[in-house]
Structures are given as C-alpha cells and as structure tokens.
Write a protein that binds this DNA or RNA. Sequence first.
DNA 1: CATGAATGAGGCTTCATTCAT
DNA 2: GATGAATGAAGCCTCATTCAT
Lengths: 206, 206, 206, 206
Amino acid sequence: MIQLSRKEEKRALIIKAAAKVFARRGFASTLMAEIAIKAGIGKGTLYEYFDSKEDLFFAVFEWFVKATEAEAKVSISALGGSASERLDALSDSLMSSWAQMEDMYSLVMEFWSASASSQMRERFKQAFKNGYSDFRQIVSILIRDGIERGEFQPQVDIESVAAALVGTWDALLLQAWFDDDFNPLTAARGFMTVVINGLTATPRKL
Amino acid sequence: MIQLSRKEEKRALIIKAAAKVFARRGFASTLMAEIAIKAGIGKGTLYEYFDSKEDLFFAVFEWFVKATEAEAKVSISALGGSASERLDALSDSLMSSWAQMEDMYSLVMEFWSASASSQMRERFKQAFKNGYSDFRQIVSILIRDGIERGEFQPQVDIESVAAALVGTWDALLLQAWFDDDFNPLTAARGFMTVVINGLTATPRKL
Amino acid sequence: MIQLSRKEEKRALIIKAAAKVFARRGFASTLMAEIAIKAGIGKGTLYEYFDSKEDLFFAVFEWFVKATEAEAKVSISALGGSASERLDALSDSLMSSWAQMEDMYSLVMEFWSASASSQMRERFKQAFKNGYSDFRQIVSILIRDGIERGEFQPQVDIESVAAALVGTWDALLLQAWFDDDFNPLTAARGFMTVVINGLTATPRKL
Amino acid sequence: MIQLSRKEEKRALIIKAAAKVFARRGFASTLMAEIAIKAGIGKGTLYEYFDSKEDLFFAVFEWFVKATEAEAKVSISALGGSASERLDALSDSLMSSWAQMEDMYSLVMEFWSASASSQMRERFKQAFKNGYSDFRQIVSILIRDGIERGEFQPQVDIESVAAALVGTWDALLLQAWFDDDFNPLTAARGFMTVVINGLTATPRKL
DNA sequence: CATGAATGAGGCTTCATTCAT
DNA sequence: GATGAATGAAGCCTCATTCAT
C-alpha cells in the first residue's frame, strides 16, 4: 500500500462519509452540509477537495467501483478446480457479499439513476459500460476455459452466457434489495445447478 | 375498451407527457412547468390531477407497470407449444420489446432510484417487490408445467430458476442500456439454449 | 321587513357562510372554495354576487356592523330610569352579548387587521372611524342627559368619558377573547360602580 | 448594555427591518424579499436567523412586547406621590407614547389578527393573555396600594377596575388609530379625573 | 488551509379569478 | 344564472456554492 499524503487521506475520509450519506438519502436529498458534518469538517472544506456535489458523487462512484472490483478480484484469484467449480464459487462469492453490501446497495441504484439522466450521465454511463464489459470478460474467460478443457459443450455461445450470468447475479441482488425474504445465495445456487448442467450436458438434439 | 371519462382521459394524457419528460431528465431535473407544456395545459392544472410532483411520478410508475404487465400478459397468452418453446418465446418477446422501450428505459432506473432513497421510498419498494414477485410466479408456473409434462428435470429448483431468469432478462436490458452495441435478444437466445438444455438434460452425475 | 328578492336572499346566504369561514380561518387563510362549499353553491357563483374576495369580506364586515348596531339599538331603546341606571344597563347589555358573539369575535380582529394594512384599508378605516364616532355619540348623549338632570357632575368632560367607556367595553371583550377565565360582565360591573360614583360624587377638591 | 454577539446584533437588525415592513403591509402582504432588502441582506440570509415568515413575525411580536414592557416599566418606576398621582402619571405616560408608536401601531392589529386565526394562533393568544394578565397585575398593585393608604375606597373591586383601565388605555389608542383627530391623551385625562374621583369619593348611597 | 455566514437563482405549489358550457 | 375545470402570477423556501476571515 502506498503511503497516502495527508490530502489524499482526507479525500478518502470525505468520500467514505459521503458514501454513507448518499446511500441513506440518495443524491438529490443529500445535503453537502450533512456530508461535512459526517466527515467532521467544515462545509467550505468540501470544496477544497471536490469541485461540486456531482464531482464528489462521482468520486464516491469511483471508490465504490474500485472497492467492488478489488473484492471481486480477490474472489476470482482464489478460485481453483474445474470450470464448473470455479463458476459456482464465483457465483457463491458474489452472492455472499450481499450481507455486507446491503446497506450500501442503494448507492448502486443512485448510480444507475445518475447514468440515466443526470448531468453526469455520460461519465457514469461510460464507467458502467466498461465495468460490465470487464466483468463479462472475466466470466467469458472462465467459460472459454471450461470449453477448452472439454468440460463445457463447444457450441456454447460464450459471450451471451457470460453477459447473462453477469446480469443474473446483478439482478438477484436487486431482487434481494426489494424483498428482505428473498435469499440471493439460495436462488443463485439453484439456478447455477441448471446452468452448469446446461453447459455440461450434451443437448438432446440440436 | 371502456369509455374513459374526460377527467380520466386528461389524467392519462398528463401521465404520458410526464413519462416522456421524466425519462429524459430524471425526476430531480424535471420541471413541472415542462410537463405542463408537454401536456399542453397550464401549470396549475397539473395540481388538479396530482397532489405533487412525487404523486405524479408515482402515477407514471403505476402506468408504466400496468403497461408492461399488459404487454407481458399478451406475450404469455399467445404462448403455445412445449414448455421449452414457451420459455424461449417469452424470453424472445421480452427482449424484443427492447427496441420500443429503449427510450423509456431510463424511467426504470429513476424508479429504482426512487425506491432506494426518496421520500416515496416505501411506495416504490413495495410495488417493485410485488411486481417481481408476480413475474417470478408467472415463470414458476411455466417451469412447473414443464416438469409436470416430463419435459424438465424434476429436481429443478423452480423458484430459484424463475427468480434468476426474471433477473437475467431484467439485467440484459440494463446492459443494453449501457452499451448500444450490446444486443439483448442475441444474448438471451444464446443463454436460453444453455438454460433449457440445463432444465432438460439429465445431469451427468449428481 | 321588506320582501327580499331571490338575489338578495342568496347574497345574504353567502355572507353568512363567508362570515363563519372568515371567523374560523381569518381572511388570508380562507379559501373562496370553502365559502362556496359552506354556502352550498359553486365557486364561480360567488363571483356573480361579489367582485372579489375582498369585496365579499367587506360585505361581511358591513353585515356584521349592521347586526351589531341593530342589537345595540334594541338595548338602548329599552333603557329607562336614571342616567346611572341607563349607563349601567347599557354596559350590562353589551357585556352580556359576549357569550353569543364569542365565536364570531375573531372577525373583529380580522376587521381591525384589514383596516391596518390590506388593500381595503381605507374602506375599513373609515367605517370603523364612523362606527366609533357614532357609538361615542350615543354614550355622550346619555352622559349629557345625566348632567342636565343634575345627576352627574357638570364639570365632567363628556366626550372624553364617552370615548373611554366605549373603549373600555371594547377592550374588556378583547381580554375575554384572550382569556377564557376572564369574565367581562363582572369586570364591567365592578368598574361601572367606580365610574358612576366618579360621575356622581362631588370631587373632594378641585 | 450587554455586548451583543454579531449573530444577535444581526438578528435584532432583521427584526427591526421586518417590523417596519410588517407594520406597513401587514403580515400577508409582506414579502420576505422586501424585508431582506430593508435589512440590507440577502433573501436567503433571513432563513439563517428565522425558520419561516411566521417565525420572523413572532420574533417581531416578542420584540414589540419586550420593548413595550420595558417602556412601561420605566414609566412606572419613575412614579411617585399619591396613588392617584401615580395612576394619572401612568395613564399620561402610556397615552403620551402614542405619538412615537403611531406608525408601529398597525402591528398590534396584525398581532391580534394573528392570534385570532393564523397557524400561529396559540403562540400569540397565549402571549397576549400573559401580557394582559401582567399589565392588570401592575395596575392592581397601584390600586391596592391606594386603598391601603386610605386614599381609595375600600370596597373598590380592584381586579375589575384594573382590567377595565388596562382595556381603556388599549382602546383609546385604537380609537386614535382610526381617527387622526382623536387625542387619546386628552380623552384619558378627562376620564381619569372621573375614575379617580370615583375611587376616592365616598359613594352617596350604597 | 479551514471555515461557515451569506447568498440568490430556481422551483414547487397555492388559489383567486375566469369563462366555456 | 350557475358551474367548476383551467389558469398562471406570485412567493416562500432550499441549498449548492462562494469568499472574507
């Protein structure tokens, strides 16, 4: 870990404070004043570190993406075994992180919303596009590897399956957000059984 | 079609105008004045039909949900053939609607955002929860039917697969929103081949 | 009583409905719509009878003044006996009307307020000026009569005493308005004893 | 004079500016913008010191009451001599303040109006009730003192006379407000002669 | 560097009044 | 005459941002 300068430390401090407030109130209802209080600094000081509320929000977004990616990379690097096992493990790992990210999840929706209509639209949209693309890439590699090992059927449409799986995981967390009784881990496991069977088994007729 | 009263017609007119503006600008940036202009009425008239901006937004949400449900029901009622064919057809139907809903899709993100942190949080959250629940129900029935027909494997976890599929379709549209080059219909087809194979084929070992 | 035309009857009906609403809500917070409902007519109909909210308010004022005057005249015409007795009786009569006017009394304050700062300022101010002047006149006559009868001291400053007494009655009702435990009738009686003694008794030294 | 903090000074500045505008226009017609201009500050700054227009109005009321009370206390503390002389002096002092308060007097009517029907009703009503009660108390003490000195008749109803006198002074100023030709000082003097005679002289028969 | 008092553009909402039916 | 749907002017208040200290 690189030694952070005093300035960078404070910036990070503000971002974390802001993340909590944005998560609770949403972008529009968040007051810069409240972030300042949460960060234990003066309102004016925020502007020493960020040009505007939108800039700060985008910084929170970048921090969130980086943190999520870092976590995902740790999960993936720890994967071993067959392609099926690795896919299962990735799915489990992602769904398991739900508990710890639940209270920050509303940030994701704020980010989606921001990419849909705010002034920052393009910045967000591009970042999401890249993020999804990267994630699909990772899953694609796993699947391709499974095909090359002879574990998965060769005619599988790699890109499509990768995209869909990424989407599935995404959307299971979304459903969990809306419904406290919904368990994304269970649902993902039940579904992955079918998907891996579908990737593995010879189609009846084609 | 039932004859709508003058009042109901105008209400619907306002909702449609509002939907367009909310879709383009997002909730926060939308001006009531612009909606009024778009609807061709006076600013004050909006308040004859809706108590507040938030109420109008929620009315747009309800309208959107109803319209989407109606479309989904038409798709489903038209389904015939084997369970696999019906599942495929449902998937195709949903993904095909992308083209015509693309310019309204940002509304969905606004709705998500609203359910995350606005004052309207609970209203939206509840509605989403119910909506997802209903949709999972529909897909569950399709899958159960496939199992009963002996078409799908009996040990399939119906609820989990239904939830995951619903999520997948949802999230493929989301990816399409972020990436113009992403074709949700293609991705869904490639994925459904695997899923249906997974539902149909006897697992190698279990 | 003159036969009122249909139009005049309805006008009176509206005025009475408006008086109740103005009394409860005050001028500013009163909605024309609420008056219309109270009067059992359409909102637009109000404008067939009154040019504006202010006009209607002034009409209520005129009605109130007329009703109060009518009541006062009845009281006075019924007076007999010595000047002292008549003064006492007038005081009692005014204070006794408190119970039945209590729920309308806030109108008086609205009228005062209107004469202080509304657009209708001059209309109201003039009417109040005349009203007070008339009332002082009545009391002056009573006092002058007392002096002429040799009942009251000749050196009494008639105009001043009349003005002050009018004010006293006015302000006792005001205090009763602010304080439910304050009994204006009792206070007036205790005070009138002193005043009449002061009017009657030879000053110790002058 | 205590050194006021910068914040308190500005608050007082705003209150005085607001008092002038409220006095001229009345509560309803007063614009926050005009107060800001009159105070030489930005519109938003008002809300740093007061939560709402109503709050500011109530602050003006409190300031007005405090100022009036302070003036009254100065008058009373300066009183010497017999009870009659002190009562006369108090009356004169109150009536003499008319000239300097004439242009602020419409505030009083706005306050009355506010206590009759605005949202602030209870706050105002309570304050008025207490104010009148305090004032009656002061006058009661003067009268009781006169009785104890043997100057006034013992059977005088102290509370009633105090209440009535307070009311009389109040209402004489009100009449002066409505009628430029009406001199409250003269009227009060003429009346006080009678009242003091009434308090002093032995009743003819009773 | 840090602060927070001051700012004013901007938007939602109200409601007296109008007018077509 | 009566109505009430439609209107838009008007004003309170919010809050991101600035800047003097």
